[in-house]
């Protein structure tokens, strides 16, 4: 048995790959649910019902989709240029803490809301950028592989946040709980559906997806980033400034992950804790791959992931299946997606 590259990978197969991958992941997870003694079909019905069955469910799902779109975009733009940014989790937290720090400046509470919110978004994005520029600098200067450094920096960033919210930025009114001082009211994002947590951050995330798509598909920078990822040597020969392009990619990628953290603070919590992110950064990697690194596909992949997490919470209460099944399914869908893309590109010959 051997594999032969298809001359012209069919568009239909490439588009169907995520569907097949998610289906395969659901089947394997279904077996795990059955082994645990529950009916997988009922479990999936409950997951869908939990995620879409009520106004609250829908709003919770979309609230969860918001940061996932941004961390998914962060991974997608980096991976396309073969910049292995696995540090989305740390960049998310640094973006969040930057907003909280900005909010502690008294002058911020006095300026009009749109300006305050814009400043917070910028602060979050810049914090995320900085955290990714460090490992990129180490790669460009010393040849250190950025996979391990970005992974290790996730732990450093989380400890830094913990240091801040237990020290200089601790909320004195939080009964001793380690959380940051709340951000001022004029930086909070408007709610989209009354009496739910769904906030205007969703619109920002969707706008970012379109913007990233436009930059990648229609700008010189997007073309250079793609070329740098496909074949760095050929790209350099054709005059692409590799270092500068990668720095641009890192700013975009780290900025998006930092923005995700900033928006989560301004939209959902209003303050920072060390459990602000249930692995949004790591899920972003899965989402980027499920979307086949397409920025618009990221929206749908993020929605799928959010449905699994929100739905599994309510399913787990009804069937006493551990809600970790959502993590299992999402992780599996990454592996099955890799195989699905492979099958779309190769044919099997005897």
């Amino acid at each position: 048995m051997r594999f032969e590259r298809r001359e012209h990978p069919s568009r239909a197969l490439t588009l169907l790959a995520p569907v097949g991958a998610i289906l395969a992941a659901l089947i394997v997870a279904g077996v795990l649910i059955a082994i645990a003694g529950a009916n997988p079909f009922r479990a999936y019905a409950l997951i869908l019902n939990g995620a879409f069955g009520s106004r609250l469910g829908i709003s919770e799902t979309l609230t969860r989709t918001t940061p996932l779109i941004l961390t998914g975009l962060a991974a997608a733009v980096a991976f396309r240029a073969r910049l292995w940014n696995i540090g989305g989790e740390g960049q998310f937290y640094l973006g969040a803490i930057a907003v909280a720090a900005l909010g502690m400046i008294p002058a911020i509470a006095a300026i009009p809301a749109p300006i305050a919110i814009t400043l917070c978004c910028i602060a979050g994005a810049v914090a995320g950028m900085v955290l990714l520029l460090v490992p990129l600098g180490l790669r460009l200067r010393f040849g250190v592989d950025e996979v391990v450094t970005t992974l290790l920096l996730n732990f450093v960033a989380l400890l830094f946040v913990s240091l801040m919210i237990e020290g200089a930025m601790k909320d004195p009114l939080a009964f001793g709980w380690p959380q940051s001082v709340p951000v001022p009211d004029n930086t909070l994002l408007a709610t989209l559906i009354p009496r739910t947590r769904l906030h205007a951050g969703l619109l920002i995330a969707l706008a970012m997806a379109v913007l990233v798509w436009f930059v990648q598909a229609r700008s010189v920078f997007g073309m250079r980033a793609r070329a740098a990822g496909l074949n760095p040597r050929a790209a350099a020969f054709a005059g692409v400034p590799l270092g500068r392009t990668l720095i641009g990619v890192a700013c975009l990628s780290g900025g998006l992950a930092g923005l995700a953290g900033a928006i989560e603070v301004m939209g959902v919590k209003g303050y920072v804790t060390t459990d602000l992110s249930p692995n949004y950064g790591y899920s972003g990697i899965v989402i980027a791959m499920l979307a086949n690194l397409n920025p618009l596909g990221v929206i749908f992949a993020a929605l799928f992931t959010a449905v699994m997490f929100v739905g599994a919470d309510s399913m787990s209460r009804a069937l006493s299946i551990p809600s970790y099944i959502a993590d299992v399914t999402v992780a599996l869908s990454l592996l099955t997606m890799l195989v699905a893309i492979f099958l779309a590109q190769y044919r099997i010959r005897r």
Partner: peptide
């Protein structure tokens, strides 16, 4: 299959750890 070693490895990490937590919660609810 020769798939990306970076992404596959991360996928294995996410799968193995979440599978471990799932089994642990089943055994010790």
């Amino acid at each position: 299959l020769g798939l990306s070693q970076h992404v596959t490895g991360l996928g294995i990490t996410l799968f193995a750890s979440s599978f471990a937590y799932y089994v642990f919660r089943l055994a010790v609810p």
